[in-house]
Design a protein around this nucleic acid. Structure first.
Lengths: 329, 329
DNA sequence: TTGAAAGCGCTAACAA
DNA sequence: TTGTTAGCGCTTTCAA
């Protein structure tokens, strides 16, 4: 490995002091002769010099690193979220440190510890649990944090989320219009995940004054939910399924296909569609699609406002999702 | 913001020198009294101390940062690749700096520049172009690099990819068995992307001795390709479409659906399926699915071998993809 | 078993 | 217009 070239090398080769080089690096040309400036420029290019970020950070007492603590990296919701975040930071001096918790609370804690060690200037957090006590270390450190997709209870940091509650009321209207008598809500572990709880609550509130019955099935790693679902479908009531995220939606449809249960004749279905393929199935699936890219962009912007201008914007910002009405309900 | 607690604070509060604290941090307990050790432990916990990574890096002259330069972050291939990379580094002292080029060569160059400034210890690169001259700066810096998904020509760094060429030969066999007379290869910009070129070449080589005719359509941002495709479908030959990536596959199917062109009666289709939903359509789509997570894991491991043991393994490692035969061909 | 001191690459106050 | 110097938080050599 070749020896790294440092500011001292550039200073020596340019015949000036490293102070002058530092001034050059930081764009302070006010009191610099054009000659010096161009000589430095040439030397830097010739030696392919890159200022050492660790040294700069040490001196500046900030890392220009933003931690992004993600629940699970391998789904399209997260991909698009990261696209929004990455695009925002592209034109800033910040770098993004993405850490995937793989839906494991222990790993999330470990990720946040690592972020502290990396001296991140702020965190974008998709929290795995809704209890602030899980995040005591970053609270104590008074690290700027913006939540995405979900929020803790009580809400201790700004949060950028979809308008889940409102969207579920729209879903409820659809159910009423089509004379459904029963709706089965399918989701992964729901307790403590604000987005899922709001999706359920919006539906429950909107259906409270009707005779439409709500049931709920939580999908676990065993396939117990399939039997439960079948038993709900056995009754004579006109039934719809509401799948609270993309993965659940596709698992459910796949299961219905294997059981030769016809959509929408034998059961209606609606769900959240992370992947935007819902229109490609036969029948096309009525689905809610979110705007995670915009959530990411707004979250990044909110965090930077927070870090650089000590501004704390509104607690919860709701980015509209869109309900695509198609043929499955 | 509260003042950061440093090694000096811990030293003072523990009544020892910072040398001793440093020894503690680095697990050098050989010559340390149990008393001292536990006192330090307590102080660190009490003050919630985190060693400053920038200072450590500066001293150690390495950042423990790995740069991951990705062509486009928002697709499932990349998500699963990142999952594999992240899982690997989880248990190491390295952190991962992911940068998305958004399929823009200029942005890729800028990302690599940023990585140099961040002093990354190595790079995992999904190259946007196949010409090594595009990567002159990281070549000059003698930075350890491992390529994923694609490789430059000539191959200047180890590469972990799918067995694209081989898989296309299998596709060719399928085409022969089903008596197709013509195949239209649909893809994004193909020149300079080794994976796509190999997918095309494998097919061409395997069909060279047959009468099956190969045509190629490159998908651009205008919708010109749709007309081209239709004109190929007008002829009387039994025709199949081979879509070289997931996005192209879905766009094509969506287009065929709008045109009411029946699969596989009027045209057969086969393609690469990043999202693993190909079995859910009607008819289920015959598709190649890759193993990006394993590619990521192997790439990470190869890079670390390279960095830590100066070992340079085989040039190109091919991770088997799998051809799922379903009903669309 | 522990500590003093130098130095990693950079910035900035102060001096010239 | 440019340079000297101290110091950011840590590791490590050498000494005790």
């Amino acid at each position: 490995m070749n020896k790294k070239v440092t500011i001292v090398d550039i200073a020596r080769e340019s015949g000036v002091s490293k102070t002058t080089i530092s001034r050059f690096l930081n764009g302070k040309f006010d009191n610099m002769s054009a000659n010096t400036r161009s000589r430095i420029e040439a030397t830097i290019a010739r030696l392919d010099y890159h200022p050492n970020r660790q040294a700069q950070s040490l001196k500046a007492r900030r890392s220009f690193l933003i931690g992004v603590a993600i629940a699970d990296i391998s789904n399209m919701y997260t991909s698009r979220l990261l696209k929004g975040i990455g695009d925002y930071f592209q034109s800033t001096p910040y770098q993004v440190l993405i850490m995937d918790a793989d839906n494991d609370s222990t790993r999330e804690a470990s990720n946040l510890e690592k972020m502290m060690t990396e001296q991140v200037d702020g965190v974008i957090l998709q929290p795995l649990t809704n209890h602030p006590s899980h995040y005591q270390n970053i609270i104590d450190a008074q690290l700027p944090v913006v939540q995405v997709d979900r929020y803790t209870h009580p809400v201790i940091w700004p949060a950028i989320v979809s308008d889940n509650y409102q969207k579920s009321r729209e879903v409820a209207n659809l159910l009423k219009q089509s004379n459904y008598e029963q709706v089965v809500v399918l989701s992964n572990h729901i307790h403590g995940i604000s987005s899922r709880m709001n999706r359920l609550k919006g539906l429950a509130d909107a259906l409270a004054t009707t005779t439409i019955k709500i049931s709920q099935i939580e999908i676990t790693s065993d396939r117990h939910w399939e039997g439960q679902l079948l038993s709900y479908l056995k009754c004579t009531k006109k039934t719809a399924i509401f799948a609270l995220n993309g993965h659940v939606l596709w698992s459910t449809i796949r299961f219905l296909q294997t059981q030769k249960i016809l959509i929408p004749d034998q059961v209606g279905i609606i769900g959240y569609d992370d992947d935007q393929y819902a229109d490609m199935l036969t029948p096309a699936i009525t689905a809610v699609s979110q705007n995670p890219q915009e959530i990411g962009r707004v979250a990044a912007d909110t965090l930077i406002q927070n870090i650089e201008r000590d501004q704390f914007p509104a607690d919860i910002v709701r980015i509209p999702a869109f309900l695509h009405i198609r043929d499955s309900l």
